[in-house]
Design a protein around this nucleic acid. Sequence first.
RNA 1: GCCGGCGUGGCGCAGUGGUAGCGCAGCUGUCUUGUAAACAGCAGGUCGUCGGUUCGAUCCCGACCGCCGGCUCCA
Length: 646
Amino acid sequence: MSENSLVSVRVDTSTAGTTAGSLLPKDSAVARVDGELRDLAYVVSEGQTVEQVPYGSPDGLAVLRHSAAHVLAQAVQELFPGTLLGIGPPIENGFYYDFLPERPFTPEDLAAIEKKMSDITRQRQTFSRRVVSEEEALKELAHERFKIELIGLKGPAGEESVEVGGGELTIYDNHAGSELMWKDLCRGPHLPTTRDIPAFKIMRSAAAYWRGDQNNEQLQRIYGTAWASRDDLKEHLRLLEEAEKRDHRRLGTELDLFSFPDEIGSGLAVFHPKGGVIKREMEDYVRQRHLEEGFQYVGTPHISKEGLFHTSGHLPYYADTMFPPMEMEGSDYYLKAMNCPMHNLIFRSRGRSYRELPLRLFEFGSVYRFEKSGVIHGLTRVRGLTQDDSHSYCTPEQAPDEVKHLLSFVLSLLKDFGLDDYYLELSTRDDSKPDKFVGTEEEWSVATAVLEKCALETGLQLVADPGGAAFYGPKISVQARDAIGRTWQMSTIQYDFNQPAGFGLEYQGADGERHQPVMIHSAKFGSIERFIGVLTEHYAGAFPAWLSPVQVVGIPVHSDYDGYLHDVAARLRVEGIRVEVDDSDDRMQKKIRNAQKQKVPFMLIAGGEDVEAGAVSFRFRDGSQDNGIPVADAVARIVEAVRSRA
RNA sequence: GCCGGCGUGGCGCAGUGGUAGCGCAGCUGUCUUGUAAACAGCAGGUCGUCGGUUCGAUCCCGACCGCCGGCUCCA
């Protein structure tokens, strides 16, 4: 990321032997010397190129966050002697450090730790780098068993972590004056002193498995955020607050859209009338679009005898994530976790001709997945969900066109729901775990090549996801970015050569022979529930008019005009508009406030002036107004806004 | 599933070893005139569930259920 405007110095005879920092402007966090990040204290030699790495640059931020992580660890060890260190890398927006304390941290502990960190930064302790041999490192860090483990893991050059680089081992010492305050195994680089960390804040503590493996010991992780300035920190905290206001779980309650009654069970949502409106509008629209795209609407039950899921191959693989079976009349019945097996039976219900292909079946299929208790999250991770699920049965030759067809269909649908910022992900099999995937290498590479080619043709960014495939075939997924930049897996398109074989699916070809079709699985929203959750956050609850539970609220300036607005409402209602008149005893101002809080797209206000003119006055969600609009025009305007899905 | 935190009227929150309050919402009444909160009164909770400690538990302890933050996982 070396930009032209940044200072770049070539070391000559006169500057050789000085430090990198002495050649750079004050706002440099570290230096880049011949492409490598170095401490500002790095002693340069002739012929080297020294570049500035400002605090606000990506590398500068990573360094200052890493330095903040060190300060955190130092604070923790000063307050809680005996606490062992894990790792402490910079991450997006901040940093964390993992610890093994004698007892987990309390909120009070975190406050004390933050205060101690401030003390350390005020002391202007220097970070100084020291190269050590492996023997020295093992000796100095003998009491830190996690660090010892990392030293043991030190691989050849190229395999690097924040603790141990590929080449040499280094320890960073923190000095206050000449006194050694603390040290940590670290490859660096760091800011010159603890005082140079411009702004930080401790955010939360949580548990994390050592080296990310749930078979390992669980450590206590402390998360912090750190920035190049106080203002940046404030802005970050403001964004977090903003995100919290958009949280679909909160908006779901405030807007009376849905809830999760404890009595039903974890991860099982009920949609209230207002959420039901959104759900129905989405479903109606998507059903219509599927019909237009050549899909046939079908219906299947929620449960099945277990044999079906053995045939599909799901049961031996995914019994863990299915609800346990119910025994009835000598058979075990399972709640379905996927719809494809049942669609396969529809395909197989009679002989099929090549003339019917691609045969496209579609339904809103409700499935149940026993997600682990800790992963359930609002509408985005539930145990009962409805997929807008389709299966296209086609010849292998037709498969590429069908995938392309589905991709463009999916993308146009997302666009209609205001999501137009996305990238694709290609999930492939993990060759090191052949037992998790069914089918031959040949089949996988054919299927993967088809998906990859189609994905690349969209011109969208394509990200690899090795090992992320379903057991029966590779997958393209659409990762959509919402209004505040978070990404969500929405649509999926999967190429499956396995289930057609398992179910013995076949069609009669033009040659009179029987052939096996391939099937392309696709969910456009993914799950209706998740999509509603994502849309809620994307729009911060202010849904476009066509999806709004209440599209128009009539607000009389005085109760004398209730009747007039009821007449206006009736004219809207015959156009299919969801309209209410607030004829309660509240003042007009209160009614506006209520409608505003419910994020109603159109408020129609009427007083004496409007009645005389046969008009109404618009107030929009953004607070702007358009007064004295003739009723016929107002109706037309609202109808148009809804019809155009604007 | 794991670690930690939390669970008080519909919602948001106080609070205490001697069976509970506030704001909003609700109901009733009096009001209502131009773009984000009129006023008054009333009603509403066996303090998540089940055990235990105690003369006595919403408060202390345990289990379970649920929620939250992470980790792991996500066909």
